[in-house]
């Protein structure tokens, strides 16, 4: 029983990270129609940068905030490259993701890095849970609430959504579609960066951590047809818990496979129901 609680809380923490990466994918896809495969790199860059800043003596919160801002800037950069050439965006983001490896290795080396998070251990029953997992959740949930409010209730959020819905008509009502796309990339970068700085204290980061993040994040996002952040959150949490339960009671080697299987299942089901992915790109 105590194991179960520990696994669930750990899974929720990991899942929140997936959900954040996934919501970054959603933010970008909703506005630009681009599936950003460089999304995981934002998390890696932000996490690596945070470790450097902390080592340089900057305090927590400030370090993490700076790293997230830099990740947002990286998002704009990727957006500039990816939205320049219509049709090639998917390959461009893949290429940027691989290029990011080189940059990361040059700047931070190829060894795993980590940094301390929220210290302390909570005891629930006889389960011992690192307090940092709760911090991850405490940050992620309000962020998602904010995202939902932003997209659903603000003029800017509606303008962003309108870009994805009908670019032609969006231009006519005075929306600068390209600028909105870059804004979405900035938002996606910040969300990816947030995932990186939040989850690294409990699971360290290497230059190729982005693969795990992007696969799981995509699996979470695809549940909501890549357009609904709320569903991406539910999907991410579900995925995180499923993985820790399988790792805990089965074997730890199958975590990525679980995500892939879930993603494929969802996509097959959606495809047979005439596909919300296709529907959303109209």
């Amino acid at each position: 029983m105590s194991d179960l609680i520990a696994y669930v809380v750990t899974g929720l923490g990991l899942g929140a990270g997936y959900a954040l990466v996934g919501s970054g994918l959603v933010a970008i896809y909703r506005v630009t129609g681009v599936v950003n495969f460089a999304q995981g790199a934002f998390a890696v860059v932000a996490a690596m940068l945070t470790s450097t800043l902390l080592a340089a003596g900057l305090p927590h919160v400030l370090s993490e905030t700076l790293a997230v801002v830099v990740a947002a800037g990286a998002g704009v950069l990727v957006g500039l490259i990816a939205t320049g050439e219509p049709g090639a965006a998917l390959i461009v983001t893949l290429g940027v993701g691989v290029f990011a490896y080189a940059v990361e290795i040059v700047l931070w080396g190829d060894q795993p890095r980590s940094f301390g998070g929220l210290p302390g251990v909570l005891t629930v029953g006889d389960a011992r849970i690192q307090a940092h997992y709760l911090l991850i959740l405490a940050v992620t949930v309000p962020v998602f609430a904010g995202l939902a409010l932003f997209f659903g209730r603000t003029d800017l959020g509606k303008a962003l959504t309108a870009c994805a819905s009908n670019r032609y008509a969006a231009r006519v009502v005075g929306i600068n579609v390209r600028r909105m796309g870059l804004l979405a990339f900035a938002l996606g970068g910040a969300l990816g960066g947030l995932a990186g700085v939040l989850t690294t204290p409990v699971q360290q980061v290497t230059f190729d951590s982005d693969v795990t993040l992007i696969v799981n994040g995509f699996a979470a996002a695809v549940l909501g047809g890549l357009t609904r952040p709320g569903v991406a959150l539910a999907g991410g949490l579900l995925l995180g818990v499923a993985q820790t339960l399988i790792a805990g009671f089965g074997g730890g080697a199958y975590q990525l496979e679980v995500a892939l299987l879930l993603m494929l299942t969802v996509m097959v089901i959606q495809a047979t129901r005439a596909g919300s992915l296709v529907g959303a790109t109209r």
Binding site: L156, A169, A170, V172, I175
Partner: peptide
Amino acid sequence: RIFPGMTALENVMVGAHGTTRAGFVTA
């Protein structure tokens, strides 16, 4: 040329985008 996936009211509200003053931060 409407915005599918958004309600009729939201469609009309988007029409006012060109007249808005509020930037990203205030929003």
